[in-house]
Amino acid sequence: MPPDAPVVASWIVRPRRALALVFALSLATGSGQAEESVSFDIPSQPLAKALHAFSAATGIEVLVDARPAAGHRAPDLKGSLPPHEALSILLAGSNLVARDFGRDTVILAAMSPAPTSLMEDQRYFADVQRAVEHALCADERTLPGRYRLALKLWVGPSGEVTRAKRLDTTGDRARDDALDAAISRISVGTSPPPLLAQPIAVIVSPSYTGTITGCPAGVLPRRAANR
């Protein structure tokens, strides 16, 4: 499947530990043309309100039945992103996908994928979560809990990450550089399901207390070279 294939599923993976990883498949623009990035500062809130804030920030009218959006909470969205990437993050965990993404209007619709496919995707997202945890926890500069990270991953048939893109900045250039190095070392180790749409968007959220969270037992971080 090509890198910019439309979304067919989205999930929030609730981890065993405090590290929050949100997985969603990225959306594609209807025109296939590159989009200009927009500055977003949307806090976590009910999805309907988050979509309203998205519309206000982009000038894109969002057409959606309120019933599928009810009961879902969108994650926080901060930073400069193309609108279709920003929308994919807001829709993570909901049952909504973009059926038509135009220049001024996006139409959202509920989707009901096959249960077997959803179970395979969920199991694979758990594998991706573990791989991301190990990569971030292997360096003290990238220990999760004190920053927010959003990125997209493409995984090849062997389970290797063939491409990765960081979607925002933590506000710390040294940490961003360390994150780029850590992201380049991510390896899932297992093949993705045959029908899994890619890329996979990953959000690592900070803990409420700002403390280090989510690292598996036995993973010892390497110290920064300048320490």
Rank of each mutant, 00 (worst) to 15 (best):
M1S: 15
P2W: 01
P6V: 04
S10N: 14
I12H: 11
V13R: 12
R16D: 13
A28I: 04
A34M: 12
A34S: 11
E36Q: 13
V38K: 00
S39C: 08
F40Q: 07
P43L: 05
A48F: 09
K49E: 15
K49M: 06
K49I: 09
A50L: 03
A56C: 10
A57C: 01
G59Q: 08
G59L: 11
V62Q: 03
V62S: 04
L63A: 15
V64I: 07
A70G: 08
R73D: 14
D76L: 13
D76G: 14
L77T: 13
L81D: 00
L90W: 14
A92Q: 08
A92I: 11
S94H: 00
L96Q: 04
A98V: 14
A109W: 04
A114E: 14
P115M: 04
P115R: 01
E120F: 09
A126E: 08
A126V: 08
V132K: 07
E133S: 15
A135I: 02
C137N: 10
E140D: 07
P144W: 02
K152P: 02
W154E: 12
S158Q: 12
R163Q: 05
K165E: 15
L167T: 04
T169H: 02
D177F: 13
A178G: 05
A182W: 01
I183M: 12
V188D: 05
P192F: 05
P194L: 13
L196I: 03
I200M: 03
T211I: 13
T211Q: 12
T211F: 06
C215P: 05
C215L: 03
C215T: 01
L220S: 14
R222G: 07
A225T: 12
